[in-house]
Amino acid sequence: MSQSAATHSTHHLGDEAFMSVSDLKSYVAQVESAKASQSYAAIQQAENAKRDLIDKLMKRIDITPERTHAFMNRVKLAAERGESEMQVVRFPSEMCSDHGRAINNTEEGWPDTLVGAPRQFYELWKADLQPLGYGLKAMIVDWPAGFPGDVGMFLTWK
């Protein structure tokens, strides 16, 4: 191949098939920026959803006979499937006065850290379900970035 053909070929490949290192770096930076903005948007959306859930769970729930009947039907169905527990509420550990520390350490006074609907469910269990033989346990059910995330409260039976 002649010198002019090699130069022409390299020039042709450089213009149409290959990008320069600076173009590649710019492209990677744009892709990373797009990923970060999408990730930021997803994080913001998740944080907004968590705040909405906390707001909702801070309010007392109206316990109607229909709700009680539907709840007990869910318990019966779980028992029929051979299960011995059912998660009844899941909420961010931020709703606990100690951010879930007592629950994570299974301390005796963990119910005292509850507020809102989780506290209401605990009180309902204590007054109405515990005398019927049902148990209640609470545990941290997820660990985002190694920190306590959501708390799950489970109605138990044997």
Results as ranks from 00 to 15, higher is better:
Leu114Asn: 04
Phe91Met: 01
Val75Trp: 07
Lys25Asn: 13
Arg119Val: 00
Ala127Asn: 12
Glu47Phe: 06
Thr68Pro: 04
Asp62Pro: 03
Ser37Asp: 11
Met19Asp: 08
Val75Lys: 06
Asp150Thr: 04
His99Cys: 10
Leu129Pro: 08
Gln130Ala: 07
Glu16Phe: 14
Ala5Pro: 00
Arg74Gly: 08
Ala36Asp: 07
Ala46Thr: 10
Gly109Lys: 07
Ser97Gln: 07
Phe121Arg: 01
Glu32Met: 15
Phe121Thr: 00
Gln45Pro: 00
Val115Asn: 13
Leu155Gly: 02
Phe154Ile: 01
Gly109Pro: 02
Gly100Ile: 00
Lys50Cys: 08
Gly152Ser: 02
Met1Phe: 06
Glu94Met: 09
Lys25Gln: 10
Tyr27Arg: 15
Ser4Arg: 09
Ala6Arg: 10
Ala17Ser: 05
Ser20Glu: 03
Asp142Arg: 06
Ala117Glu: 15
Gly133Lys: 05
Leu77Asp: 14
Pro111Ala: 03
Gln3Lys: 12
Glu83Pro: 00
Ala49Trp: 04
Ile61Met: 10
Gln130Ile: 02
Asn73Asp: 14
Ala127Gly: 09
Ser97Arg: 13
Ala29Val: 05
Ser93Gly: 13
Cys96Asn: 08
His12Val: 05
Gln87Lys: 05
Ser33Ile: 01
Arg90Val: 10
Tyr134Ser: 02
Ser84Leu: 02
Ala79Trp: 09
Ala102Thr: 01
Ser20Asp: 03
Asp112Leu: 14
Glu16Trp: 11
Gln87Ile: 06
Ile61Thr: 13
Phe154Ala: 08
Ile43Tyr: 11
Gly133Phe: 05
Gly100Leu: 01
Glu83Asp: 15
Ala127Val: 13
Gln130Glu: 12
Ala36Pro: 02
Leu24His: 09
Phe147Ile: 09
Lys25Val: 12
Lys126Trp: 10
Val151Arg: 02
Pro92Cys: 05
Phe121Val: 03
Thr10Pro: 00
Pro92Glu: 04
Trp110His: 05
Gln3Gly: 04
Met95Asp: 03
Leu129Tyr: 15
Lys137Trp: 03
Thr113Ala: 11
Lys25Leu: 09
Glu80Tyr: 08
Ala34Asp: 14
His69Glu: 15
Ile140Trp: 02
Ala79Tyr: 10
Ala29Asp: 15
Glu47Ile: 04
Val88Tyr: 07
Gly116Ser: 03
Phe91Pro: 01
Gln3Ala: 14
Leu53Tyr: 07
Ala41Ile: 04
Met58Ser: 15
Lys158Ser: 15
Cys96Leu: 02
Thr156Lys: 12
Trp110Ala: 04
Val115Ile: 12
Asn73Ser: 14
Ala70Ser: 11
Arg90Asp: 09
Gly100Met: 00
His69Asp: 13
Ala70Met: 06
Ile140Leu: 01
Trp110Leu: 03
Glu83Arg: 14
Glu94Asn: 08
Phe71Lys: 08
Ser20Trp: 04
Met95Arg: 05
Trp143Pro: 02
Ser33Leu: 15
Gly116Ile: 07
Ile103Met: 00
Glu107Thr: 05
Gly82Lys: 05
Gln44Asn: 08
Asp98Phe: 11
Ala36Phe: 11
Glu85Pro: 05
